[in-house]
Structure formats: C-alpha cells, structure tokens
Write a protein that binds this DNA or RNA. Structure first.
Lengths: 230, 230
DNA sequence: GATTCGACAATTGTTGACAATCTACAGTTC
DNA sequence: GAACTGTAGATTGTCAACAATTGTCGAATC
C-alpha cells in the first residue's frame, strides 16, 4: 500500500548509502583537507554509528574516487593534481555533450521542465554573486549542471555526473581563489540555457566545450595548490 | 625504494576491492541470475572470508550499479530492462566518442600502441568466432572497447567504462541468444580500428554510433528476457 | 472456505573485541 | 655523528556474537 499522508518509510535507503551521502557532502564542503587520512573510529563516533557501517560507506566513496584506499594504511581524501582537473573536465564535457544531444532529441515539454529548473538556479546564482557567497555559488554552479544532465532521465549518466560534480567542487575548493571570471559565470550559464531553449545543437555543443575549457584554464592557471609548489 | 627484481608487495590493493573484482567477474559470467538475492553468509564462506569484508565489497558493487541494495532485505543482482540497455549503450557511446576525440588529439605513437593492442584482440576474436565460443567472444568484445578507452589514459573515463563493460556483458548474458550478426562483429571492430589508424575523426565517430545503435537493436529486438514476456 | 492474527525461521544490520600491520621514536652500534 | 635495529603506540583489518527486521507458515476465527 502507498504510504499514508504525512508518513513515509523511515530511511528506506540502505544505511551505508546514507552515511556515504553525508560524508560526501562533508568532503566537498572542505571538512577534510586533500590528502588527509580519515580516521575510522573518530568519524564513526562523530556520526554516531559503528565502524562497520562507516567502513561500508568509505568503500562506496573509494569506488567513486573521492577517497583513495591504501591497504593497512587507511583511506585518504583525494588530492587533485592539474592532470586530475583536466581529466574531470574532459569527462564532464563528454557527459554534458551527450546530455545535450539526448535533450535535443527528446520531447519539447520535457526540455521545458528542465529549462524552468535551470532558470531558477541561474536566478539564485545571480543573487549569490551579488552577495559574494562563494560556497553557495559553487553549489549552485554544480546544481545547474547536475539539473542539466538530470533532464535526460538517464540514471546512469546522472549517477556518473554526481561523482563528477563532487570532484569538481573539490577542485574549486582546493584552490580557494575561485571564480576569477565572476561576471562571466552567470552569463555563460544563461547562454547554455538560451541555446537549449533555442534547440541550437551545434551552438550548445560549442558553448559547453568553451565553458569546460575556460574552467580548466581557471583551475590550472594558479600553480600553487595551497602550500606546496611544484 | 623500488621493489627488487622478482619481488612485489603482497596484495597491495585493499581487500574489499579484490573481493569486489572477483564478485564482478562471477556476476558477469552468469554465476547469479538477474534479480537473485546474494546471501552474505553463504558467499562469505564460499570466498573464504568473513561477512565484514564481503559486505564492503557488496557496497562497492552497489555503488557501481551491478547490485541493488534494499534496506533490511539484502542485495540483489541487477535486472536489466530494455530501458537499461538503451541507457547503458547511450553512455557507452558518449564515453567512446570522447575517447575517440582524445585519442585523435594525442601523440601518434601513443595511438599506435593502442592500435597494436586492438589488432591482437581482433585476431583472437576471429579465432573464437570460428570456434563459436560465445563466452570468449563476449569477453573479447568488451576487451576491445575497454582497450580503446584505456588508450586515452584518462583514469576516470576508464573506471566509468569498466562498469559499463560489466553491465554490457550482463546484457549479452541475460538474453542468451547473443550475437545474431556474428559475421559483422569482427568486421565492425576492424573498421573502428582502421578509422582510428587513418585518423578519420568523423568516420570514426559515425562508426562508433552505428556500432552502438546496432547493438541496442540486437539486444532489445528479442521481446522475451528469459521467461517473462512483456 | 477465505481471511486475519500470531509465532517461527532466516537473513540482514550492528556492535564490540581481537589480531595484524604500519609509523615513529628511542636505543644501540659502527 | 649517522645509520640501523628494536620496541611502543596507534590505526586498520578481520571476525564472531547479538539485535532487529522481514517473510512465511500454520492455526484460529468469521
């Protein structure tokens, strides 16, 4: 039977996934430094659970690539090199281009729903830009792209992109001097939205490619990645 | 210091990953039926380990999407619907197109290495086609595409593709009547290799798209997915 | 005869304790 | 003084027992 009004199944999702989601959010918000070891006992008691479920959650994040596991050493927060940044944005470009093609090949009203959502995100983004809330801007930036990919309805593409979004936020976080081209940010997203609404395939593809290319340039131009210089 | 000749670190990779790799191989080989529940205790003793490490491995495979977890119910082998097949091959197309572009933009000798590997796989494939060893053909088929993507050196793209390869093998396995166009199989892969060597970008892209499209047609044309008819 | 309630069996979820491994530091030797 | 060895501490890896939930079978009731 369907859940009665106001009621819903208590924590229908498996525990390890719930913990993993919490942890992922903590990591992308910068609660752990890149390269830092994750202490199991400490984290377990902090999240008021036991080491068993926590370790299961850690394994999920290792599979995603946000954490790296070394045998008999423990798990560590991913350290992002410039090569990593290039990799991440290359895959993001591939996923978003595929999402763009899928969207343009789908029903008009389905695209309209996505556009409406994107419009709202851009509006929020403009507000946060005015307020200079970098943390919120980073979240909305990724929220925009995640919504874009979600519009395809392809659950595998969406899942892949969620990991990429988390890694991207880590990129932005690790080199704290984020968003040098703050004015262009809202404008670029608006252009992607416009081209999607106009159903301009080649224009949309080019806009996405440019968007990614500029992001990589911004993220890799700063040689120092907080402290250590190559 | 580097490991002396003939010596290497004993099982440098974490345990959960080792178990997960074993399990993935078992699943794609059809040791479990789609939708079947995975009994933790039984599997743990079968793999001569405990439930703890096994559960960690199961969580990894859940994250990949090969298994699905239901709270207080256990984990089950993924059941593939025709929609799943379309999803998987849509993502595969996206990844391989990106890989093709990356490869064509890289050094010539790097591409040559990949081509050499692909050539060897095609040769093995032709042998197995002659022997009608379907299991081996499926493995070599995915080995070809995995090697193709590996040629890019993009570790994230490679990791994503490994999951897709596993799911693809499950697709082929679930509808056992595999490879109806057996003659075209070797030919299509050979064409992809030739176009890569010729550095024909648009030709290569079209070949990949056609290859994926035909695979989806083959895999979704059979209405019965072993038993249940829609 | 169909349905509902209750108890049982099986399986998962969680916890705590034990064993193995690694890093760091101190002591010893050359 | 430098390098090596041995020990101590901490942390991870593994295991077995306990608790909680789910699905099933059977009996009682309408």
């Amino acid at each position: 039977m369907a859940a009665p009004e106001g009621m819903f199944v208590l924590e229908g999702r498996p525990t390890a996934q719930l913990i993993a989601d919490q942890l992922r959010e903590l990591i992308v918000q910068g609660a752990f430094r890149p390269g830092q070891q994750v202490n199991e006992s400490a984290l377990a008691s902090q999240l008021s659970t036991s080491r068993g479920p926590l370790r299961e959650a850690l394994q999920r994040l290792c599979q995603e690539g946000i954490l790296v596991s070394k045998r008999n050493r423990g798990v560590f927060v991913l350290e992002l090199s410039p090569d990593d940044v290039r990799e991440i944005y290359a895959v993001r470009e591939a996923v978003e281009l595929a999402a763009a093609n899928t969207l343009l090949g789908s029903e008009a009203d389905q695209v309209a729903d996505t556009c409406r959502e994107l419009k709202g995100i851009i509006r929020s983004m403009a507000k946060q830009v005015a307020a200079s809330d970098w943390q919120a801007i980073a979240r909305l930036d990724m929220q925009f792209h995640t919504a874009f990919v979600s519009g395809t309805g392809n659950t595998r593409l969406i899942r892949i992109y969620e990991t990429l979004a988390a890694e991207s936020r880590m990129c932005i976080l690790s080199l704290e001097v984020a968003y040098p081209r703050i004015d262009a940010l809202v404008q670029e997203h608006q252009m992607i939205l416009d081209l999607l609404e106009a159903r301009d395939q080649s224009g949309l593809q080019n806009a996405i490619k440019r968007h990614m290319q500029k992001a990589v340039e911004d993220l890799t131009s700063e040689p120092e990645v907080s402290g250590i210089t190559a």
